[in-house]
Design a protein around this nucleic acid. Structure first.
Lengths: 236, 236
DNA sequence: ACAAAAGTGTTAAGTCTACACCCATGA
DNA sequence: TCATGGGTGTAGACTTAACACTTTTGT
């Protein structure tokens, strides 16, 4: 019984676009390669798939290694497969994107690796096709965020509505009316108001909210239209 | 300069979920494998990536081989990577889904291969994880079709509004009010009314429409909400 | 003349958008 | 007391959903 003779095997890599939000700006985490080829150039965090893991496991594994994080929001994005994307060897890379709370994990990151957060509009030239991956990830993040309650993954467990609005405004590069925004967010019934306030960003203080987890999970794939239709720019 | 030593290479396959619409029902195209392993079992049309092609090219190539079709709507779906998905050897498979006009190509299909159209609810047990791939493709098709004008790819160049409605109703397994449906479709301005009628499906006859191609291309990634929100079941 | 599918208009309900003022507090 | 950001209500425009009758024509 001859099986798959004569077919070429290739290396399969995973690259992670890791998004974080620092309260003001959306950023992504890049590392400076410590090995050849392209040593010292900035790149996405990546690695190769191992014989006994699937891609999700490999991506989680890579994320754990770089950030120390587990249980992070992680989603397969796209397989990049241009035969010359890596000039040294044929590698197909499956890109994943991750959303993490930048503040929570600030300490664990970037010590063992030359890792650094970059604002989305200050991303350096990356190796291979990584700039293209970032572009697609950004587009996909907007796409999903316009429809699904995904951006909570970028915030701490307790957050305020003005913080949340900031995040949406940052990602969609637009201004949203705060009355309409809070009405829409609260109408989802996904948030539970806490008795305490965050007093860091204002004198009056803003009430904290936490996610209603069961409802959040239930509604995750429901359609929720967060961004005013005219402003939901999904181009590039 | 040592590069990627010691990493395991794997076989990378492509599997295509080919959707077609016969005017009544949504179907997918399956083939009976003529080679081992799993000879004679039904499966998706697939193949391996070649050294000089990327995945899109490989998928087009496979589609061409099976159906004789080129220029078909084709979209990368997901990379399936369970280490044991193929019990004989480790293979990562990137699934693609395709939309074709079943009638137009009926003749070209299925002669050289044991290919056959199956209604979506009569799909046999497929090899490996292909049933899972079909399930995901179906979900993705609904998802995209609820938002984007994608289903025209399943129809002939000239089609009637009742045909189109039939298609939407089939895919979403729901009934749509025809007055509201035609108003919504026509409000997109994507269709151009033809002088002739299709008289096959009714005595009165229904006017043909064709796509306004420039507008279609322009609006492809715009948000158009075709399905009444309550009915847009995107679960499974 | 009748059966079968095509085509069309209106009204009520709901949603979305734009907009402005008061509140609480720390400095 | 004042400057800063937080919080809330309403009215008009628009969109959606529900609904029924007339038209055409082949048999």
């Amino acid at each position: 019984m001859v099986k798959y003779n004569g077919q070429t095997k290739v290396l399969v890599a995973i690259d992670c676009i890791i998004f974080g939000f620092d309260g003001n700006e959306l950023k992504i985490l890049l590392i400076q390669r410590s090995f050849s080829p392209e040593k010292f150039k900035w790149s996405l965090m990546g690695g190769f798939i191992q014989p006994n893991e699937d891609l999700d496991q490999a991506a989680n594994h890579i994320l754990k290694t770089l950030t120390g994080l587990e249980g992070v929001y992680l989603e397969q994005l796209y397989a990049f497969s241009n035969p010359n994307r890596d000039p040294f060897e044929r590698i197909i890379s499956v890109a994943y994107f991750a959303l993490i709370d930048i503040l929570k994990y600030e300490t664990q990151i970037s010590n063992n690796y030359h890792a650094q957060w970059f604002s989305l509009n200050q991303i350096p030239d990356l190796i291979f096709d990584h700039n293209q991956m970032v572009k697609l990830a950004k587009k996909q993040l907007r796409y999903k965020a316009a429809l699904h309650p995904i951006l909570f993954e970028l915030l701490p467990g307790k957050f305020t509505i003005p913080q949340l609005q900031n995040l949406y405004e940052g990602i969609f590069e637009t201004q949203i009316d705060k009355r309409n925004f809070s009405r829409k967010i609260l109408s989802t019934k996904l948030l539970i108001k806490q008795p305490e306030k965050d007093k860091l960003n204002s004198k009056k203080g803003a009430f904290y909210y936490v996610l209603d987890m069961p409802k959040y999970i239930e509604n995750f794939q429901a359609f929720l239209y967060f961004i005013p239709k005219q402003q939901a720019s999904l181009q590039d």
